[in-house]
Amino acid sequence: MDNEELLAQLRAHDEAGLDALIDQYGDLIRQVIWRYLRGGYERGYTQDIENRCYYKIWAKIDTYDAAKGNFEAWVGTIAKHQALDYKKGLKGTFQDLDLAADYLAADEPEPEIDWQPYLQQLSGQQLTVFKLFFVDGLYPMEIAQQLKMKPTAVYKNLSRARQKIQKGGQQAWQS
């Protein structure tokens, strides 16, 4: 089934469209999720995250605009965001189900930590490497390719960034 037909069926909420989506994009969705879930424990929740991706695509298909990018990239972005949300400690709760939080008995989410004071002490390159590794979840080899540097340089930047943040954290705690 070509993308035009698939999109038409998904927009019509036709079951055949959902089946085709799983057949044609199931592997892509799983690959994107596994890129961000590295441990065996986290991957034990793969199907749950996949289900959330399929639901998002099913429910939000009308918001897809072909002029802004191809369908594959849109699906990949949804899978990436779902995987990252899951990693942020939302698994096992109802907080990421799009149900109003007032109806859910889950614990209150922890307040967001303001990382800015800690990250300020990093140099430009260290900050870029740090964010790509910890926020975007890229492997050091991928960061090296993206920034056109040697993998050893990536490790060195990460190590120095960690040391600086540790020192900064201790100073902040002592003060």
């Binding site: 959902l18 799983i22 289900n51 109806y103 859910l104």
Partner: peptide, 27 residues
């Protein structure tokens, strides 16, 4: 495929359930 279809149906069911809950009632 059957699991995904059921997951989507159950999301609709849960949306209906939230309409039944009283003020401050939690699942």
């Amino acid at each position: 495929k059957r699991e995904v279809a059921l997951y989507i149906s159950m999301r609709q069911v849960l949306d209906q359930v939230t309409q039944l809950l009283g003020d401050g009632e939690k699942i």
